[in-house]
């Protein structure tokens, strides 16, 4: 057994109903675990791109890729090399604001992390933060003592650097 690590799999699929279900069903049935998945349309309106992160050893990931490829509605699958890939995740984080001290702490953190406050109420703020997953984790750690009310994360999305592209 080789070592477990996190792989990012870029997948082009037919943009039509049921395809996300098919992909998710395949993962469940074969006993693979999805860490995160993000889906959206691409530059071509009949194609969607799924960015799937999976933990596993090399052999498992090879199987994941092959089983994905086997699905008729999956058009192209490739493992993205972390060294040449930009990954981003977005999170919306609702933080409790107990007093003015808390408020100024939050403003300071938001500034350092180059994130934004996108909603303010008397006792809470919503922060929008984008970056790699570690950056979001770090922000969450920092904000934790203030009291986090809600978190919504998009999961990772990724593209390889330079001219290379996953195409049909």
């Amino acid at each position: 057994m080789t070592e477990e690590q996190t792989y990012i799999i870029g997948t082009l699929v037919e943009h039509k109903p049921g395809v996300l279900f098919e992909v998710a069903n395949m993962f469940r049935r074969r006993g693979f675990n999805i860490e995160s998945i993000s889906v959206g349309v691409t530059e071509q309106k009949d194609l969607a791109r799924m960015t799937i992160t999976v933990n596993g050893d090399e052999r498992t990931i090879e199987q994941v890729v092959k089983q994905l490829n086997k699905l008729i509605n999956v058009i192209k699958v490739s493992i993205l090399d972390p060294n040449t890939t930009v990954t981003r995740e977005m999170a919306l984080i609702k933080i409790h604001v107990a007093d003015t001290k808390a408020r100024s702490d939050i403003i300071q953190y938001v500034d350092i992390f180059r994130s934004h406050i996108i909603d303010i109420s008397s006792d809470s703020v919503i922060v929008e933060i984008t970056g790699d997953s570690e950056k979001i984790d770090a922000f969450l750690d920092l904000a934790m003592p203030l009291g986090i009310k809600e978190v919504a994360r998009t999961g990772i999305t990724a593209l390889s650097r330079g001219g290379k592209a996953i195409k049909e």
Binding site: R59, K66, N69
Partner: peptide, 8 residues
């Protein structure tokens, strides 16, 4: 003919 069988 099924590549997913290889190494499965």
């Amino acid at each position: 003919v099924d590549s997913a069988e290889i190494g499965k």
